[in-house]
Nucleic acid binder design. Structure first.
Lengths: 181, 181
DNA sequence: CGCACCATGTAATGCGTTACATGATTTT
DNA sequence: AAAATCATGTAACGCATTACATGGTGCG
């Protein structure tokens, strides 16, 4: 999937690995993230596949930059993936739910500490979606009419993030009440 | 984490790899899953670490079974993990959100098809939590008073699953409305 | 003076999936 | 007659993380 994240971002404009990481950290992080080292490796693989092409831009004051561009083959591959329906649900892995499953073996104090910590983290994250992410979307789209349609979808995914975090925090609050009472 | 899932389940009773897979499929699947091959490999590693011990039970009609038991060191390791607070949010990876992020490049028809397919999957999954998972928890705990406390937590995680799927379906419904209108 | 930023990469390790291999019994 | 269940494992491969390696510029 990182493959398609990178191809997708490169449909907007050519970028270096470093830039791609920055853009991901401001946009897709909440549903797809990657480390820089992995991004570099994946870009290299994409170039071998002929889906992107790179040119080295030499700089004197700063390190040289390798700028990646999506190729026609890359665009074709990406849009093929995009139109391919996902016929299954994404399997989840959540450590905190796993712990809760075994929580009967944990003493009340330690459990409550963990639950309240998580609740606070999710509240903070909900707030983050509400303010920072919303602002980032505004900033990326204002004055750029060709991104109007994109904005709708970016906003939709932002809303999902916010509601998900709120649900999580609410649910944790309930569990805390249950453990306390 | 699979390590702790297995150790956690083995605190209830000794089991074979095959059984552990079955139990996981009925309980933790929704927040932690694994393939059989991976379970066997992990159990082998746990035995090397001295956290579980196995005995081979020979059978004539069926293949021999290797029964794993948690050791005192295993219990100590598990309870240490259980009491260790998770200080960060679990990073998410959701293909459908990634696709939605790039959905402006997709034609309306194909997009709507994917969104409605996903909505139906999430509705079905919500229903599954509501009925089947609830029934499985009932079944596992009825007539076993020492599981009363466990039941509370199993029910709590089930409720989270149900509410999460409902939220997802509701949100997809909204996005569908947006794309249509 | 130290830290963050810019910028790219390699190597080792870990965790997970898919495919391969075997083979009897029970259910459809 | 075919498929599912019981039961265990190995091997190849893929994707991700962590650590290692380098080194100049700008800011507090």
């Amino acid at each position: 999937m990182l493959k398609y994240t990178l191809l997708g971002l490169l449909t907007y404009r050519p970028m270096t690995g470093y830039e791609l990481k920055q853009v991901m950290d401001q946009s897709t992080t909440h549903f797809w993230h990657a480390k820089l080292s992995q991004i570099y490796v994946t870009l290299k693989g994409l170039e071998e596949e002929g889906l992107v092409a790179s040119t080295l831009q030499e700089q004197q004051e700063r390190p040289d930059r390798r700028i990646y561009q999506i190729t026609p083959a890359g665009r074709a591959d990406f849009s093929q993936w995009l139109s391919q329906p996902e016929t299954e649900l994404a399997p989840k892995k959540e450590t905190i739910l796993l712990k809760l499953f075994f929580a009967a073996q944990l003493n009340r104090r330690a459990l409550l500490a963990q639950l309240t910590l998580q609740r606070d983290l999710h509240r903070k994250q909900a707030e983050y979606y509400h303010t920072e992410v919303a602002r980032a979307i505004e900033q990326a789209t204002e004055g750029v009419p060709e991104l109007a349609r994109d904005k709708l979808f970016w906003e939709a995914s932002r809303r999902f993030g916010e509601e998900y975090e709120e649900l999580y925090a609410r649910w944790l609050e309930e569990v805390i009440g249950m453990v306390e009472g």
